[in-house]
Computed example of a mutant assay.
Amino acid sequence: MSELGDGEAGGGGAAAQHPTNAPARVRVTAPRAGVAGAPTRPLTQLSPVGPTSDIAGVYVRSLIRSQLRLAVVFAAGFVAATVLFVLVIVLVPGLDSSYVFGVPASWLLLGGGIYPLTITVAALYVRVASRNEARYRSLAEDA
């Protein structure tokens, strides 16, 4: 027989897959908030007790709030700028009739305006988010 044919190494019997001396598998999950019987404890009770853990929790929550605020501001700005591009194309009818190198000016405005806008917004977001994280790291190291 082949090496895998007798059920020892590759996938035959149940004994090969579940040895008798192995502990049973346990699924570890977090308790869901609002479910009957689920413990409701503040964040500080889940971490080791002490003043540094409280400060670390405050720093983490502050970082999360600042990153969320940053994402919302950049997303709203990007949507507003994109809507502005579309409104300019819709409200200025002469763009469709004027051509540059055989391409309608409205297409050039979209292609030459939206893609650089997207790249600029993404680069600025990454830069500011990295700055926020660096501030968090410096505060967390000091604590």
Rank of each mutant, 00 (worst) to 15 (best):
19 P>D: 09
108 L>Q: 08
55 I>M: 02
30 A>N: 10
80 A>M: 09
44 T>Y: 01
62 S>Q: 12
110 L>S: 03
79 V>L: 15
21 N>Q: 12
29 T>K: 05
97 S>G: 01
26 V>D: 04
69 R>M: 03
83 V>A: 13
46 L>Q: 06
104 P>Y: 05
33 A>E: 05
51 P>L: 14
13 G>H: 04
82 T>V: 10
86 V>Q: 05
99 Y>C: 00
51 P>H: 05
91 L>S: 04
57 G>V: 01
30 A>Q: 08
64 I>W: 09
102 G>P: 07
22 A>M: 10
63 L>M: 11
49 V>R: 12
60 V>S: 04
36 A>R: 14
62 S>L: 09
105 A>E: 14
98 S>D: 05
14 A>C: 00
67 Q>G: 00
83 V>Y: 04
89 I>Q: 03
68 L>T: 15
16 A>C: 04
102 G>M: 11
87 L>I: 03
102 G>H: 09
22 A>G: 01
72 V>R: 06
30 A>M: 11
90 V>C: 00
61 R>I: 00
34 G>T: 02
93 P>H: 09
26 V>F: 03
89 I>F: 03
87 L>T: 15
82 T>H: 00
39 P>S: 07
106 S>E: 15
28 V>E: 15
17 Q>Y: 02
54 D>L: 07
21 N>V: 11
52 T>Y: 10
10 G>W: 14
56 A>Y: 08
106 S>F: 01
96 D>H: 15
106 S>H: 15
46 L>D: 00
50 G>V: 13
91 L>E: 07
56 A>R: 11
70 L>M: 08
60 V>Q: 07
102 G>W: 00
89 I>E: 11
104 P>I: 10
18 H>N: 13
65 R>F: 05
13 G>E: 13
72 V>I: 12
46 L>F: 01
11 G>Q: 08
14 A>G: 10
68 L>F: 05
29 T>F: 05
112 G>Q: 12
90 V>W: 14
30 A>Y: 07
26 V>W: 04
38 A>D: 15
102 G>R: 13
44 T>W: 03
95 L>Q: 09
46 L>E: 02
56 A>G: 04
92 V>T: 12
50 G>T: 01
43 L>Q: 06
19 P>C: 03
46 L>P: 00
99 Y>I: 04
96 D>T: 02
83 V>N: 02
58 V>G: 04
43 L>M: 01
19 P>Q: 02
29 T>H: 07
18 H>I: 08
79 V>N: 10
83 V>I: 13
11 G>S: 13
89 I>D: 02
9 A>N: 13
55 I>K: 10
36 A>N: 11
8 E>R: 11
64 I>H: 10
84 L>R: 02
25 R>V: 14
79 V>T: 15
109 L>M: 09
68 L>A: 02
56 A>E: 15
12 G>R: 06
45 Q>K: 05
46 L>R: 06
41 R>T: 05
33 A>Y: 13
99 Y>E: 14
104 P>Q: 10
75 A>H: 11
28 V>G: 05
112 G>W: 11
8 E>P: 00
85 F>K: 00
12 G>I: 10
108 L>E: 08
50 G>R: 10
66 S>M: 12
82 T>S: 07
48 P>Q: 14
106 S>I: 00
86 V>K: 01
102 G>I: 07
99 Y>M: 13
34 G>F: 06
49 V>K: 12
96 D>Q: 14
43 L>G: 02
112 G>S: 08
87 L>M: 07
25 R>W: 05
23 P>R: 11
92 V>I: 02
